[in-house]
Design a protein around this nucleic acid. Structure first.
Lengths: 223, 223
DNA sequence: ACCTGAACACCGTTCAAGT
DNA sequence: ACCTGAACACCGTTCAAGT
């Protein structure tokens, strides 16, 4: 499986793009985005920083590769032949859960426009939108609306998780703090935000996310 | 207007949070996110790096303040009393255009969950959704769907602009390159992306964005 | 072909010292 | 209260030199 360009078998523990990506994922998952440095990476891989550059182009390249690995796995774990409507919902929920488990994926995805991981999602959504019978001339609009929504929620969740991590708060404490900030906003200028503050800590991100998917699917159907 | 804590008038050209934010916006607009450093900032303001820290907490603080200034201006320029439906579309388009003009705003917004600039948008959207007559129990879902979508598109546009800038390409060249990458993907694995490649360079981001808003608005109405 | 690790050119942030 | 600028503790990336 692991071969050099001239076909020789490598030492079991030699460096490879995959091993680097796996190590990066491990660091990102356990310690967050800020912890992924070439120092931490080369220590974990017991090598020099320069060695890593033989296999990857840059830190951005690595981040996108790590993100892509998670996205590929997530999409791979999807049930194959469902009704298109259900398939889109399942895809969206799988992505939501993956980003919940790996917040850095959300952050990376939100700024990886047109790159491999987003193309994977685009493709899946596109196939299902076609299966839905959406005519040619609105397919792109339908697909990009769904994709933008999914990536938007990804980014927001990642930002929340990142902020919570920085302040060493769990989700409940973090939403509690945000709720208290919102409730202190001037009610004249922020009536809506103000009135929503109390509901913030109890709300179900996942259910809200799915509700948004349903709005879009309904909107596409109604077109 | 500009006073010290003990009420004395400051020199006209003395430092202030606003002057720093304006300088940051100027740098971000003319040279992009990567160009905003404390070195560039203190050179432009003819001061030391440390002086800036008297007025701002951190680079993140500054970035969010700069973003908020643009968002506040953008929302301020909105026509006041339109039909809720039209008001939401106008708000969305104004935001789209602002992010198109200041791509760094898109990037900052996408990771500023719950912070002042996103709350401003949340509030505006919330007020219009209420005016739309959406019942209490779905207001939050409706508002957060619209907000997530707007922020998602923001992030994607910012990412595109950033990538194009890095490679010194204009929009047309950039989309052309992306289109050619997409068209070279394996047609067996990526039939949808493949077939959309040709349409990519000619498509209208702004129209697609608005189509997405309409899907969501239709979906909310149909609920 | 692949790896080493020192060197380079940066960063954001802090802080003793000034006014 | 506000500003200075040197110092600190990092970064990602490169590259001559090794195997």
């Amino acid at each position: 499986m692991i071969k050099t360009a001239h076909g020789k078998q490598r030492r079991e523990d030699s460096l490879s793009r995959e091993r680097i990506v796996e190590a990066a994922i491990a660091i990102l998952d356990s310690s967050g985005e800020g912890a992924l440095t070439f120092k931490a990476l080369s220590q974990r891989l017991e090598t020099g920083a320069g060695a890593i550059y033989w296999h990857i182009d840059s830190k951005d390249d690595l981040l996108i590769a790590a993100c892509d690995a998670i996205v590929a796995r997530t999409l791979g774990g999807l049930p194959e032949n469902a009704v298109p409507d259900a398939a889109i919902r399942a895809l969206a929920l799988h992505m939501f859960d993956a980003i919940d488990a790996h917040p850095w994926v959300g952050a990376t995805l939100a700024r990886a426009a047109g790159q491999l991981p987003t193309v994977r999602i685009l493709e899946r959504v596109g196939q299902q939108v076609r299966a839905l019978g959406v005519p040619d001339d609105v397919q792109w609009a339908a697909v990009s609306a769904l994709l933008s929504y999914i990536l938007g929620v990804s980014g927001q969740n990642a930002a929340n998780a990142q902020l919570a991590r920085e302040r060493n708060l769990d989700r409940a404490d973090f939403l509690g703090e945000m709720s208290s900030v919102w409730s202190k906003l001037d009610p004249a200028g922020y009536p809506f935000t103000n009135s929503m503050a109390a509901r913030l800590p109890a709300h179900d991100d996942r259910a809200d996310f799915l509700a948004g998917i349903d709005f879009i699917l309904n909107g596409i159907a109604r077109r």
